[in-house]
């Protein structure tokens, strides 16, 4: 490429001519992401209060193993070596990995948590920089595999939203259709997560962006346009879905603990 002599650099963290509050946005991102990681880790480690009647917290879905009754799991009782492990820990690595390797979040947390750079045209604390070219950040290239799993989760959470519309009938015989506040919370959760997942940059590439002549494939061209539309608002989908998935867990948790009452809107 050819080197360029630009003289000695006198950077350093926060070195900038910008007079505006450049630190506000990365600080807000830092608080938002750290807050989510702290809450979701705490909630995942609890291993209780994650369901309330027909509502299942998205942090615990799919529920692979559960032996204490109250809700059905996919595979019944856990093997003895998993008895003391919270069911959330068995599945949360997949959506967690999807978010961690997401192109939007990468750009956001490189700025807010690594100060690499802290903001545009603002000095950095470190001189050494390796980017995503070497270990460990080269592993971010696994994003598309997490995306495949995240798409599966959308269907599973969609089924949960459907289940949240079917309440135990009075008298305990069968189920009846209804809508509670929790139904709306879990339905909005899957809509926001779908908007985020189906606007993924990797999906956009795999569905058509990797091809130079999409006009010969009208179906894929249409899908590419749809994903592109969602992708244009990827940041908004990312934050809304992040906040709402945590709130969905909190809603189910507080209902299960008897602190909040789940109002039935439609019986």
């Amino acid at each position: 490429m050819g080197s360029l002599d630009v003289g000695v650099r006198r950077g350093g963290l926060g070195n900038t001519s910008r007079p505006d509050a450049w630190w506000a946005y990365p600080s807000a991102v830092f608080l938002g992401l750290t807050g989510f990681v702290v809450y979701s880790t705490w909630a995942a480690l609890q291993g209780n209060y994650f369901y309330f009647h027909n509502y299942l917290s998205p942090f615990y879905s799919p529920l692979l193993f559960w032996s204490h009754g109250g809700i059905r799991s996919w595979f019944g009782a856990p093997p003895h070596w998993l008895v003391n492990v919270s069911p959330a820990l068995l599945i949360l690595w997949a959506p967690g990995g999807f978010r961690l390797s997401c192109y939007y979040y990468r750009g956001a947390y490189y700025k807010s948590h690594w100060a690499d750079p802290p903001a545009c045209a603002v000095g950095e604390p470190r001189l050494r920089y390796r980017g995503e070219r070497s270990f460990p950040l080269i592993l971010q290239n696994v994003h598309r595999y997490f995306m495949y799993l995240a798409v599966l989760f959308i269907f599973i959470l969609g089924k949960d939203a459907w289940e949240a519309m079917w309440f135990r009938a009075p008298g305990g015989h069968g189920r009846e259709f209804g809508i509670g506040v929790g139904t709306l919370v879990l339905t909005l959760n899957v809509i926001l997560l779908a908007g985020y997942t189906f606007g993924c940059h990797s999906l956009r590439h795999l569905i058509g962006g990797g091809r130079d002549r999409l006009s010969s494939l009208p179906g894929r061209a249409c899908a590419y346009r749809c994903v592109t539309k969602l992708n244009n608002r990827h940041m908004a989908w990312a934050w809304c879905s992040l906040f709402w998935v945590a709130f969905s867990d909190l809603y189910v948790r507080l209902c299960a603990m008897g602190i909040w009452h789940d109002w039935r809107i439609l019986r």
Partner: peptide, 30 residues
């Protein structure tokens, strides 16, 4: 691979080209 997609290039582009989303990330995917 040195680009860590912080989108500053997109932010300053006077032609409003979506440099990161439409050029760099698709190239990274390729």
């Amino acid at each position: 691979g040195l680009c860590n997609i912080t989108k500053c290039c997109t932010k300053v582009c006077p032609e409003y080209i979506h440099i990161t989303d439409n050029a760099i990330i698709p190239l990274k995917e390729r």
